[in-house]
């Protein structure tokens, strides 16, 4: 299987390599083979990295917490309310995946900027005198932008999970006397749960791993761990091993939190 080989060579090997690299040491522009946990110690003792990590996780969780319910509601509507147009609506939502990643981020900067579309429109209409500065260069701007980018990706798994729920399931429950809310809790949510889980993973991981959005709309105060990682590879004073360690610390934090949150969701829905 050539594709399997391609994955092994260009995905498996580099990921393992990056992990090994995170235990090495940078000296000037050279990477010295000198195994240690020094990079991880540096991250664990640096208040700056910790602050960035906390912000990154927070932005990731908030984004996922907005994206997943929105995607759930959309999938519900497509499946049970606009049944006949469901496919068309799905296509429309998915099409926005191909509306240009950089273009969208830049567009949000255009809209939210200090002299941007929203502020200038409000001023033109005479609703405000001074531009609203908080719109851009904040975590809000990052979250608004990321939500728009990740929403279609979150719809995909939830929608396909809901496709397994038939009208028969629902009618059977209704015949047995279930009310609407009860129905949602006992049938809809448990059956859609695998999709919700996948959507949450997508949204959380990809939001926490993004660096282009905070760089363009987050401002200097809104930088996330991804920006620091990118700088360790492309910036001045690059430090590859440290960047690799930072990337894995972030991935590990996200994965641990993901497991915790998914367990909590399951406990709530089991009840």
């Amino acid at each position: 299987m050539p594709a399997g080989g391609y994955y092994a060579l260009l995905f498996g090997v580099p990921m393992v390599g990056l992990f090994v690299l995170s235990f090495l040491r940078a000296q000037g522009f050279e990477v010295v083979v000198d195994f240690s946990f020094a990079n991880y110690e540096k991250i664990a003792t640096s208040p700056l990295y910790q602050k960035l990590l906390v912000r990154t996780i927070r932005v990731g969780i908030v984004t996922a917490a907005i994206v997943v319910p929105m995607a759930f509601a959309l999938s519900y509507l497509m499946r049970f309310v606009f049944e006949r147009r469901g496919q068309l609506i799905l296509q429309l939502i998915l099409l926005s995946l191909f509306s240009g990643y950089l273009v969208r981020i830049y567009a949000w900067r255009t809209i939210l900027g200090k002299q941007g579309l929203l502020n200038s429109t409000l001023q033109w209409l005479g609703l405000i005198d001074e531009p609203l500065a908080f719109l851009i260069y904040s975590d809000y701007a990052t979250i608004i932008t990321l939500t728009g980018i990740l929403l279609p990706l979150a719809v995909l798994p939830i929608h396909s999970a809901m496709a397994n729920i038939t009208r028969a399931h629902i009618e059977a429950a209704r015949d047995l006397g279930s009310r609407r809310l009860h129905l949602i809790r006992t049938i809809l949510v448990p059956m859609a749960l695998p999709g919700v889980r996948a959507a949450f993973a997508f949204a959380f991981l990809l939001a926490a791993g993004d660096f282009v959005t905070p760089a363009l709309v987050g401002g200097t105060g809104g930088l996330m761990i991804g920006n620091v990682v990118a700088d360790q590879f492309k910036g001045i004073g690059a430090n590859w091993p440290l960047g690799a360690a930072l990337a894995f610390v972030t991935l590990a934090c996200v994965l641990v939190l993901y497991v915790v949150i998914v367990r909590a969701i399951r406990r709530v829905t089991m009840w």
């Binding site: 929105m70 509601a73 959309l74 509507l77 606009f82 609506i89 429309l92 939502i93 926005s96 509306s99 240009g100 273009v103 969208r104 830049y106 567009a107 949000w108 255009t110 809209i111 900027g113 002299q115 941007g116 579309l117 502020n119 200038s120 429109t121 033109w124 728009g148 929403l151 279609p152």
Partner: peptide, 30 residues
Amino acid sequence: YLVAVLFYLYAPVAVIVLFSFADLPRLSMP
């Protein structure tokens, strides 16, 4: 809700296309 979501997804794209034809160097209204 549906229309609002579609607006949220497509408004940024529309803004870019609109401003690519706008006769001012600054991206603002009118």
